[in-house]
Design a protein around this nucleic acid. Structure first.
Lengths: 223, 223, 223, 223
DNA sequence: CATGAATGAGTGTTCATTCAT
DNA sequence: CATGAATGAACACTCATTCAT
């Protein structure tokens, strides 16, 4: 029977046996690692735990990833896929006020990133940037830059259409991004220890941000 | 009667040898600790290293600080939380528009914290919070809470005087804090690896933030 | 079908190389630990030393025993407390006078404990009890209690059968135990330095004890 | 004024100033050390604590005793004075049955030693004998030997007067001593952790011991 | 391919002892 | 004489990584 051995990471046919296929090991490991890295941080996560959660032995993990650091890199790379292409297209097709566009941007980001496991990645990157300069650059190029550019494009559109005041777009993009970033950093770090003292409702938070972005705090804005 | 014998632990003349004075030890240790904690993180910094950099032995460090965590707390108190009393007073005496107050707040923060070594502390806490809950709670109570409260007071003043629109002060304070936080996180983390790609001029950045905080991006704000 | 491949972790032939077999590790460690604990005391014994003497690394020790204290408990269980079940059964089956039972108890204890390395454990516990309350409680529960109970049962049997006079069994058990305890304490402590001054022949000592236990020193006992 | 400096440890006159005299330092230190050694054991007692309790600084302690070990030796030597001369005389003058003599011995020992701070010394010696061979020999010669001899003399008297059966006096003395020793070891070591499980009333305990010593457990003893 | 037993480097903290004042 | 600041050796336990089976 011509049962050829499939090259790793490639499924011979679409209807492959679901569970415990050799080719799925890396994926299971990456998923387990993401969970644990996000939950406990890089240093506090033990490789054995990752292996256990993926249902394999510690030795097996090192069969697929030569070191814990390489595992980390693989996790980050795996989880910051190029969704920006799709998003850019979405925004190009967008019709409506730029304020609506900004609103759409904020809430969509929350729905697809902020509220998911992936929201732990920025915190991880921020913490481990020093230890993984290569990854930091990668993250900067593949995530931060495209993200900033996307926001900049929205701001430019707003200015071009006379909806927004002229501004420095780089700083502008930072100012849009900052509260979003702080929201997920809070969620995954300091916020964990506030108990009920500071309860952040993402919807209200983003709504407040949008309002501030558009009108600022000053009274004259209401005119 | 001529008290010829100098009192113990007192140097014969007031202009004693500058360096290695006993009462400077804690200060030297705090400075060394701040440097190393910011540079390498809390966990990765070895107490012996701190002691060495301060020019004393490991044992001496524990003479002044009962534990590594207490050393960290002392560093934070020395550089941040200990100053809130002074800052609160400053703001109580402040006369002028609340916009000026906000400007004063931002630029003063930059001068006294943001532009100094102490700006590494927020990044540090973000990274280590999970692994050192006690420190996280301390930071939350001694730094975040007072900081947020200080900002909230400014916002309340603005609303009370009719300068600012009504708002939720908690979210408002977050929105003021976020760009400042991101500025120093950036400076101590991802920003390190961007080279010249993204050059943030703090003065311009904070000016842009202030403008946005007051007027927002929307054109109607100009009316 | 001929299963040619030896099951993992099993040596090709039954008579595998004698030493360094995986399943002997705990035993080797326990033996090394007993030696060192008795020789140097619990606190003064370094785990690395135990590991070295057992021919393994420090890490390996912690593979089998989660902590130094648990190692100690295992040593005690292996050498003393684990045997009470067997001893209790022996005594339940015992037929004969209670005096013979007491004799059997004393000389058997000497043969199986008193004359072995394990006799150092009581001295060890006496010395370290204050500093390791957890171990003290463990020893109290696992060794002293069962031991006292065993002796009490013998005494109760003697009284029940009319062989012994009525007595307070708690104090009675103490009085039986005391000379045995002192014998091994002596052996492992002060006795070490007496040279030939006081030569204790255990057989004669225990014989004398038994005689005293039965008849006392008083002459009327001979009637 | 001829105020000659008194040699250390010697008081110029009987009516010396009571408190904080230089010459009393060693005594205060020895007392403090005894308390703490008995309470916490040798290793667990910190010299600073001893110094504090004696009201001097750590440095001063080392002025009088070159090391912690020497301090220990001094403590033991100080506290096992030659009371045996007095006791021997007492026993020579004793008139009455030898059983009464034994009773007197036991309860007197309890009153003068067993119930006092000094009862901690045997436990200390037992624990530290290995570390202080010199002291162990000293203790053996100055305490154990005289004590055993004293008991032996009682036993010999009993036999000589026809009150006691013939016996090996060395073992006999051990058998008398053992329960007394165990009583104080229990008091200062393992017994500490039994809570209410085993409550030893010294009076009852010694009474039971005396009864056993005289008559044994066997029924024939009653005849 | 997979296993899991074995390894050993790395670190905060204590405390007896010293010595400049 | 007395002080107390300074020292530095000592030690249990973790966990990433290896490798014989």
């Amino acid at each position: 029977m011509p049962q050829t051995i499939a090259p790793r990471h490639t499924l011979p046919d679409g209807k492959a046996r679901r569970s415990r296929r050799k080719d799925e090991r890396p994926g299971e490991l990456l998923a387990a690692a993401l969970d644990l890295f996000v939950e406990k941080g890089f240093a506090a996560t033990r490789v054995e735990e990752v292996a256990q959660r993926a249902g394999v032995s510690k030795g097996t993990l090192f069969l697929y990833f030569p070191s814990k650091q390489e595992l980390f890199k693989a996790v980050v790379r795996e989880n910051i896929s190029g969704r920006f292409v799709e998003w850019n297209e979405e925004f190009e097709r967008f019709e409506g006020s730029t304020q609506d566009m900004l609103r759409y941007c904020l809430f969509n980001w929350w729905e697809r990133i902020g509220s998911t496991q992936a929201s732990g990645i920025p915190k991880l990157m921020m913490s481990e940037a020093q230890n993984f300069p290569e990854l930091a650059i990668f993250y900067q190029n593949e995530v931060m830059q495209p993200g900033m550019t996307l926001i900049e494009r929205i701001l430019r559109r707003g200015v071009a259409r006379g909806e927004f005041r002229p501004m420095d777009f780089t700083y502008g993009a930072f100012l849009v991004l900052a509260p979003m970033l702080v929201l997920v950093l809070w969620k995954h770090s300091l916020g964990t220890f506030c108990g009920d003292q500071v309860e952040l409702d993402p919807q209200k938070y983003l709504t407040a941000q949008l309002d501030m972005l558009m009108h600022g705090f000053g009274v004259q804005a209401r005119l």
